[in-house]
Design a protein around this nucleic acid. Structure first.
Lengths: 242, 242
DNA sequence: GATATACTGTGCGGTACCGTACCGTACCGT
DNA sequence: ACGGTACGGTACGGTACCGCACAGTATATC
């Protein structure tokens, strides 16, 4: 999926990869490599951000936590995107929380640096706006999917979205975590995953999921996955597969 | 809710009302009054738009229609917003459909006119981006609400969102329509509305809903409504109530 | 190797909503 | 006045998911 898996190059991030050269030489020395361990919170609801994050090997979940503690995921951000859109969208904060869903690394840039580029509105602005629209599609589709599709379908969609943002065919996440992301009971995930395993689509073992047949996964999910995938491809055509 | 209910003034639209004067004198003669009858489709998924629409008395639903014909609403746009964000977001199209949910009027502006203002990025850009973030919050909250809350709560939320975008305490919409918007069965709406009526919160009669007690409605809905409401208020502080 | 801990599987009653079918009733035009 | 149509109410079995309780099993700790 990513061109040079070992090199910790910020341009593994698809957005940074598409920044025009003139801007890039300016940003490159200002980008800061950060570890993103599982569960690390990048921002809390209502908190003003000091940086925007460009994940490379990590995956970040945008999720909303209800007053009673239950939560549901709104969107996923991996090496294809950026965490912190509210900064340049003009609102500075959001009511949602950004949590690392799969450990890895990423790069961050100080808010004021990003905003400088934004004020001299040029290609950077248009790139970020296009990304935002893709993210909006993911959110919309999540809403629709929550309403209309079965847990089995949603689990497949979620696995595929995660898989697209990682290398290899292995995910490291517990059923408890997945349940939180999908906004369902942990036992529900157990059962859905059990069905997938029985069908030989995945192998599941204590926090490690191995996808045996990606095509089968795509066959079992709803149309939502393809819609999101196509929108990302359309809005952010890139040098690599995704 | 709106300052001058009878005058068909484009500045009944909250976004147009906040356009800086310099820009306004330029746009004013270019704005075109359009009738928006119930069910009128402003744009189809994937279609390139020729105009952006600023509703004044109409309400527009953004909804996603599945391959099998079932549909769910992603967000609502009334006099507080604009229909056609994908135009300036850079993607030009979206996979969703925009349908008039409550008949009324609005104003439209040619796409190229809007884009001119956008390219000389100034206050107009920042206003539109802030609006977009509010809309994104509404979408996210819809996703969460779909997953975690009961139909009764969602119906209250939906009634309140619609009420906020109209004058008076009366909505004109059939249960069938509401069911389509919420992505549930028509009978489900019958039952939920029946419960509200029995409790004396609304009166329902053949396509006409009268809200008898707004506070009761707010008491029965989930936190989602307030979250969205506050985000709109925060991001788009305006001269009027909303 | 024993014990704790984290993770996964199972069972059971409850409930919210679905799919389908059908009937009642208000409003329409002629 | 009468039939048509659009809209709303009711009923009933089915199912997907919930809440809760508890049992099993792999990994970590010592």
């Amino acid at each position: 999926m990513k061109s040079t898996p070992s090199a910790d190059d910020a341009r593994q991030n698809q957005l940074l990869a598409q920044i025009p050269d003139a801007q890039w030489v300016e940003w490159k020395p200002l980008l800061e490599l950060v570890e993103l361990p599982l569960g690390h919170v990048l921002y809390e609801p209502g908190a003003r951000m000091s940086h925007v994050y460009f994940p490379t090997t990590a995956i970040v979940s945008l999720l909303y936590v209800m007053e009673n503690g239950s939560s549901a995921e709104i969107a996923v951000v991996g090496f294809e995107g950026l965490v912190g859109i509210s900064l340049y969208m003009g609102g500075h904060t959001t009511p949602s929380r950004a949590v690392v869903q799969s450990a890895g690394v990423g790069y961050r840039l100080r808010a004021n640096v990003l905003m400088q580029a934004f004020n001299r509105a040029g290609p950077v602005l248009h790139l970020l706006l296009r990304y935002t629209q893709a993210l909006i599609t993911q959110m919309s589709q999540t809403a629709v999917c929550n309403r209309l599709h079965t847990l089995d379908q949603q689990l497949c969609r979620w696995l595929l979205l995660s898989l697209d943002r990682l290398e290899g065919e292995t995910l490291r996440m517990t059923q408890e975590l997945i349940a939180n992301m999908l906004g369902v009971r942990r036992e529900g995930v157990t059962e859905a995953a059990g069905r997938l395993e029985k069908a030989g689509v995945i192998r599941y073992s204590r926090g490690v999921i191995t996808v045996l047949s990606r095509p089968d996964l795509e066959r079992r999910t709803c149309e939502c996955y393809a819609v999101v995938k196509h929108e990302y491809a359309r809005l952010l055509p890139s040098t690599t597969a995704m």
